[in-house]
Simulated scan of single mutants.
Amino acid sequence: MPPVPLSVLDLVPISSGSDASTALRNTVELARAAEEFGYRRYWLAEHHLHPGVAGSAPALVIQAVAQATREIRVGSGAVLLGHQTPLSVVEQFGILDALYPGRIDLGIGRSGRPRGTPPTAPAPERGDAEQDGSGRAGTFTDEGLYLPPQFTGFARLLQSPRFRLQLSLLQQPGAQTPAYDEQIDDILALFAGTYRDEDGAEARATPGDGADVDVWILGSSAGESAEVAGARGLPFGANYHVSPGTVVEAVEAYRAAFRPSAVLSEPYVSVSADVVVAPDDETARRLAAGYAPWVRSIRSAEGAIEFPTPEEADRHEWTDEDRELVADRVDTQFVGAPETVTERLTVLQQATGADELLITTITHDHADRLRSYELLAQAWFKQA
């Protein structure tokens, strides 16, 4: 049986000693290489106010990647709806489809402050439910996939000064994010040319109306994102690399909610994973050394740092609190020789029933990152 397809999720990381311009050029080069290696899609993430991430405007980076490639699908992983309106999203991706027809994916994620939520409170139901903080050990699925204890710090992140500043800079004063399901319905109606407001007034997005864009919903657990994706018959992206402890329940919730649509007759799931591949396990572990301090910078609400060299990572002074902060992410990163990583990714695919896997790889040196994607593709597709 052929292996499921592989795709790429690129955060456009900035390495220490480098800059955003170099990171963006590296993204274009990696996208060209990924197409040659056989990856199905190339998705760009949206992040703001992170010193070490240059992918703040997915639509712009998608245009650069689509222009530099020929056939690979290019899209967002994900556009965050709390930062813009459904119409602005449809118009942006309508333009992309007009320029690169039949190649554009719109991955959508939740963000921002839902309607009626006080400015200092965490956004409810983000797919990241709090747990009891007992430090209990994780579990394993029957297939052997490790599910660590769920990370409990998202509420603290949402209450941080950096997150509040992000909201104030990305939303107009007094703006309220509408209900997520309503936003998704508006996007689908604008693409279909069927949008009507409550008074019956029509709206036509130009470009956008009738665009051949594949709409995806991305989510981290058995919350609203999974339910919305399933109920509308849309493909779903589950985030093992963001919230590994909840990936199985997210996929199960999506499948339970799924209803056939004009888009899909049965559920379709992509599952993400953090991966570093090198010729041998020891080299891969060395290349991945910067991952833990990089994750710590995100989880501590400082914002992603420029990705450190292994030597810089060695100099990081760790506290027990730091180690606990990053444990779930570090323990579920797929690091090693091609055969090592392929075996572990196969377990992830079997445990989740993923129809494809979305691979995100960050190393300090761009050449090592390119080589990681190449080695993985060679080993993975050799199984066919």
Rank of each mutant, 00 (worst) to 15 (best):
V4I: 14
F258T: 09
T27I: 06
P149A: 14
R126F: 14
A66P: 08
Y268P: 04
A64Q: 14
T352V: 08
S16E: 15
L170Y: 11
P119C: 00
F381L: 13
D212K: 08
Q166T: 14
A123E: 09
L96A: 07
A229W: 06
W294V: 03
P114C: 05
T152S: 15
F258V: 09
S372L: 01
T246E: 14
G144C: 12
A189I: 03
Y268D: 12
D128C: 00
G210E: 11
T283N: 06
P260D: 12
G127H: 04
G219R: 03
T117A: 06
F37C: 11
A284S: 08
S15N: 05
E343T: 13
E202V: 11
V79Y: 06
G193S: 10
P260H: 07
I184F: 03
Q349A: 15
Q172R: 13
A304K: 01
H50L: 00
G109L: 06
V74L: 04
L370K: 02
I62V: 13
E343F: 05
E312Q: 15
G144H: 02
D328S: 15
E198A: 15
D331Q: 15
D209W: 07
S76K: 02
P119G: 01
G200W: 04
P122W: 07
T69C: 10
I187F: 06
T27L: 11
K382G: 15
G219P: 08
A289Q: 12
R156N: 10
G82K: 01
L234V: 09
T141A: 10
D132G: 07
P308L: 09
V215Q: 03
D19T: 06
Q150R: 13
L167H: 10
G55L: 08
A284Y: 01
L376K: 02
L165S: 12
